[in-house]
């Protein structure tokens, strides 16, 4: 269940291929990581899965249901949830309101113009629990634009998590945040991955080898290797392409 299948997926911007005939099966549990140098097409791949981009050719399936051309919100309803590389929150709302908005979609009451007390309390309770789980409960009534960047990034994931996704797409969740926050983030992602399939795009090698169950390596829009972390480390092609220039990768 919750398998993502990608078949000959291409994406061009003008004359340039960001992705070229990429085929990929994500069918094992745990955290699937996509790595590669800048401009390799990692974020593009993630956006194609979430629906923020529509591919030039090829197709994407979620459990043999084709989702290639579905709009973002339909994919979200099917269980594909994404976070953004740069935080993308409801800035003028409090932390708990951010979660509540996600929850009311999860409970499918977003269109209702009345809400009974029970449902209000239920959502409030759920939201509090989620914030507690993500260690954000101290900032519950704070506007999100007053949170630290690290907390914003965690909230970013918490919002997506609140929709109970089947597949969670994370775009560089640790970029730009402090070391303490990074550790916290790694733990959170590990926890989430127990119940949800996670697809992670990441630069930080420590994070990758800490988290990844499987790794796909992209370069110039093509897959150049795939396997467990240890397999990838041993793969000579990848080493020459990628790990050999370890210093250059972290940008």
């Amino acid at each position: 269940m919750n398998n993502i299948q990608i078949k000959k997926l291409s994406m061009c911007f003008g004359n340039m291929f960001a992705l070229e005939k990429v085929s990929l099966n994500i069918d094992t549990n745990g955290i699937h990581t996509i790595i590669g140098p800048n401009g390799a097409g990692k974020s593009t791949l993630l956006k194609l899965i979430s629906g923020h981009l529509i591919p030039s050719s090829g197709s994407i399936y979620l459990d043999s249901k084709e989702i290639t051309n579905l709009p973002i919100y339909t994919r979200a309803k099917l269980g594909i949830s994404c976070t953004y590389q740069h935080t993308n929150l409801f800035d003028d709302m409090t932390t708990i309101e951010n979660i509540k908005i996600a929850l009311q979609q999860q409970y499918d009451i977003g269109y209702k113009i009345t809400q009974n007390k029970l449902s209000k309390l239920l959502i409030l309770d759920q939201a509090t629990q989620i914030l507690r789980r993500f260690n954000l409960d101290d900032y519950m009534c704070q506007n999100t634009n007053t949170l630290s960047y690290g907390h914003q990034k965690i909230l970013e994931i918490a919002i997506s998590f609140a929709t109970k996704p089947l597949v969670l797409l994370l775009d560089e969740p640790t970029s730009g945040i402090s070391l303490t926050n990074t550790k916290e983030m790694i733990n959170l992602i590990k926890q989430i991955s127990k119940t949800t399939r996670v697809i992670l795009v990441e630069h930080d090698m420590d994070v990758i080898f800490n988290l990844a169950d499987t790794i796909t390596v992209l370069n110039h829009g093509k897959i150049i290797g795939q396997g467990t972390p240890s397999e990838i480390q041993k793969n000579p092609t990848i080493q020459s392409y990628y790990l050999g220039h370890y210093d250059n990768i972290i940008t």
Binding site: H52, T74, N88, L89, A102, I109, G110, I113, Q115, T163
Partner: peptide, 26 residues
């Protein structure tokens, strides 16, 4: 009643961040 209902929250969510609302499934 409308603006203080879940529907009203949805509208305010759209005003605040339309893209996020989409990726939440709205």
């Amino acid at each position: 009643q409308i603006v203080n209902s879940p529907f009203g929250n949805t509208l305010q969510g759209i005003k605040s961040n339309q893209q996020r609302m989409l990726s939440l499934g709205y």
